[in-house]
Computed example of a mutant assay.
Amino acid sequence: MAKRVKIVLNEDIVNLGKDGDLVEVAPGFARNFLLPYGKALAVTPAVLKQVEHRRAKQAKLEAAKKQEALDFQTALITIGRFTVKKQVGEDGVLFGTVTNGDIAEAIKEATKKEIDRREILVPEINGIGNYKVQIKLHSEVTAEINLEVISY
């Protein structure tokens, strides 16, 4: 009886692998769980060819997303400065704080493109002035924008 069986995963499985990975598992695990529930496929030349095709397609999509992020980074740099209006008390101290949601709104108004507010790293902003803000556009692309906080 075989010690290990090679299979291709159809979905992400914790502690085993991601969708499309070629893994070796115990024969009972493959026979009793992975194969009957459609979580994996037995390795055949046709399945391997399909996996390679899927990986090539995924790589092409990932390259397109990265290029889109680079283009958006260039657009953000071209714009140069984004402005957020906040209520200010005496001595230029803010009432409240500037949040990543405020910055996302300012970017959306200027570029007409919505970005995820969770990808914005906001420094501590206590008063009016100019600040540098980091935005993660892609796993490999980050943009740094200038943020101007003014009173209204």
Rank of each mutant, 00 (worst) to 15 (best):
M1A: 06
A2V: 13
R4A: 13
V5G: 02
V5Y: 00
I7L: 12
L9T: 00
D12S: 05
D12V: 07
N15G: 09
N15C: 07
L16C: 05
D19M: 13
D21R: 03
V23Q: 01
V23G: 03
E24S: 13
E24W: 11
A26Y: 14
F29R: 12
F33Q: 08
L34A: 08
L35E: 11
L35F: 08
G38I: 09
K39Y: 13
K39T: 11
A40S: 05
L41C: 13
L41G: 15
L41K: 15
A42T: 15
V43H: 09
V43I: 08
V43P: 05
T44F: 12
P45M: 07
A46W: 13
A46N: 14
Q50H: 11
R54I: 10
R55N: 08
R55I: 13
R55P: 12
R55L: 06
K57G: 14
L61Q: 08
E62R: 13
E62L: 10
D71T: 08
A75H: 08
I77F: 08
I77D: 10
T78K: 07
I79M: 14
I79C: 13
R81H: 06
K85G: 14
Q87L: 11
Q87R: 06
Q87C: 10
G89H: 12
G92P: 01
G92L: 01
V93R: 04
L94D: 00
N100C: 05
D102M: 04
D102G: 03
I103E: 08
I103Q: 07
E105W: 09
A106S: 06
A106I: 04
I107N: 00
K108S: 12
K108C: 08
A110G: 01
K113S: 07
D116F: 05
R117L: 05
R117H: 08
R117K: 10
R118Q: 02
R118Y: 02
I120T: 01
I120H: 02
I120S: 00
V122E: 03
P123A: 03
E124S: 14
I125V: 02
I125A: 01
K132F: 11
K136F: 14
L137C: 11
H138N: 10
E140R: 07
E140V: 05
E140P: 03
V141M: 01
A143Q: 02
A143P: 01
I145Y: 00
N146M: 11
L147T: 13
E148K: 15
S151G: 15
Y152D: 09
Y152S: 15
